[in-house]
Design a binder for these strands. Structure first.
Lengths: 339, 339
DNA sequence: GTGAAAGCGCTAACAC
DNA sequence: GTGTTAGCGCTTTCAC
């Protein structure tokens, strides 16, 4: 029970306590090689009695193998990445791999730093959000010699393997659906995040598809900080006050879309007759709103599971495809006319 | 550029490339000890050119120091823990410590497994949610010889140090406020999670304070799975159908509370006159609702920052208090009468 | 089925 | 200011 200050237990302690060589103790603890039942029991008993916890640092150094996977994402606070993580964990749980999460706050330099930090632990692979990285980060990824799975986005060039959706196409598809439903006075409400490349690409795809049909965005507004739901309300109100002619509002995420929806319902707007709405992400939250906001599922969980599967395959020496594009579908909900 | 298959670079490579001993290279890369500027430059240049990333595994083994902090939490998907994490990260960013997150899904056995896994990397400290752990987990924490900060809850006995709020008291306070406002027919809506000890304690505190005033909960309903917002709607509807006499609904979290609020507003209930509402957590989301739900801030971010501060103090050899109780305050919003 | 020796890539401690 | 030596606690390899 009482442990001699500081120093934690080693294999040697278990070896001495059980009267078995360190090597054999190691074998027992890792379930490797043949060990007689009697020896195994003795070792297990001793290890448990002592409360021995193996030192993975030493193990990793000796074996040159680390069962960690670096997962690098921009944020934990917007619902989308926790779901991706869920998918990753679910798959890795059935393997010997373990995810370790790093958060970049959408800052390229921080991403670089986090990556450096994580690579210095010599993980078995990297799953990293996005295709945009600093040059140094790309160099590190290239030099690491481990599988690198870039997730979320497929509009660009990957270092190695990518798993995601085309946000540009997602924007285009939504634009087409909106036009097809007959809306022409379209407002866009988004986040003020120049470094959120996926939101940017959706916006570009959106405006591009509108332009192709001779339509231009009538109003736009961007926010940053604060409660997304509250910002959605405020921006919607401000925008409609500025331009009451608008007949459609496209929100860059469901949360601000939900805020807008709630505000419009309160004000008695006829949705989707008088004004249509759409968001992006397909968050579960929407299920509980008075009306279902039109949205597009970003395939978050599937991206996570697929990425983990691909990574696991690579770690086992297989050679899976290097591009995995998932295709999100529009959910019309109650806020975008169907035709 | 081209690296010879598999094997990644070592100090020796940098040493050879720069013509400086491994030891000095190590000193430069760690900013330790005096090194002449000329040497430093040469080393840095060589390291950068090669794209060298130090091997922390070897470093940690040699120095017996690991700058990792194990952070063990039940879930990432309910808004509360990401905020705690935010607080932890913010503080640790100014130190040499780095958080590594493990998720338990509220399962004691999984917590034990995750803890074991993390301790085997010999972190500098542990921040773990809750005071309830398996016996084995407690034993490991005790034997680890590192600072252990148990967070969120202070109603119980800590292994070492605790930082959190009293959920029992939170429940009591809310009950008192509700009674004081004149409500008597109270319904409780919660999660079906026997392993969420903090929710359980709030419930116990709540019923206890009611009982002390001769009031009993009139209705109760528990849910599991699905969109919390949607469940809040459904449960509210079901409960009021069953018992239209209810004049107050206490929700175990803000998300289901928000769902209930939206449903009641739609149905034209007079809030808080006809029926009062309260949730728990103080989530930012609430700012965007048509009416402000009464709630109680769980001090999530402060718990994170305080825990990290205490841990950092301990790592530096200081000896901070072992109990840090934060005190949440009721926010009455628009759904709980003031008196 | 078990053990002994060597070494993974670094750093502490000490020498110069 | 810089280099040398001896491990850190395991696992690999090979011998028995």
């Amino acid at each position: 029970m009482a442990n001699d200050e500081k120093r934690s237990l080693t294999l040697r302690d278990v070896s001495e306590a059980s009267g078995v060589s360190e090597m054999t103790v190691s074998r027992v603890l890792r379930n490797r090689g043949d060990v007689s039942n009697a020896t195994r029991e003795r070792v297990l008993r001793a290890a448990k009695d002592l409360g021995y916890v193996p030192n993975k640092i030493a193990g990793a150094l000796a074996s040159q193998r680390v069962n960690l996977v670096a997962v690098i994402i921009p944020s934990l606070s917007n619902m989308v990445f926790p779901e991706v993580l869920g998918g990753i964990s679910q798959v890795l749980e059935n393997t010997e791999l373990q995810p370790v999460v790093g958060v970049t706050d959408y800052l390229p330099e921080k991403e670089e730093k986090v990556l450096y930090e994580m690579l210095s632990w010599r993980p078995s692979g990297v799953i990293i959000a996005g295709l945009e990285h600093t040059e140094a980060a790309r160099a590190m990824l290239n030099a690491s010699g481990i599988p690198v799975i870039e997730i979320m986005d497929v509009d660009g060039k990957a270092v190695d393997t990518m798993v995601g959706i085309s946000h540009r196409r997602a924007g285009r598809e939504m634009a087409k659906a909106i036009l097809k439903a007959g809306y022409r006075n379209i407002g866009f409400l988004g986040t003020k995040m120049p470094l959120d490349h996926r939101a940017r690409k959706r916006f570009e795809g959106f405006t591009e598809a509108l332009a192709k049909n001779g339509v231009e965005i009538a109003e736009r507004e961007f926010y940053s900080g604060g409660s997304a739901l509250a910002k959605g309300r405020e921006m919607t109100e401000a925008m409609l006050k500025r331009n009451p002619e608008l007949d459609f509002l496209y929100y860059s995420n469901d949360m601000i879309g939900a805020g807008g929806l709630l505000w419009l319902l309160e004000k008695g707007y006829d949705i989707p007759g008088e004004i249509g709405l759409a968001g992006f992400n397909g968050v579960e939250l929407l299920q509980g709103l008075p009306r279902h906001l039109a949205t597009m599922d970003a395939c978050r969980r599937e991206i996570g599971t697929k990425a983990a599967e691909v990574l696991w395959a690579r770690v086992q020496g297989e050679d899976p495809d290097m591009i995995h594009e998932l295709v999100p579908k529009i959910s019309f909900g109650d806020t975008l006319k169907r035709r």
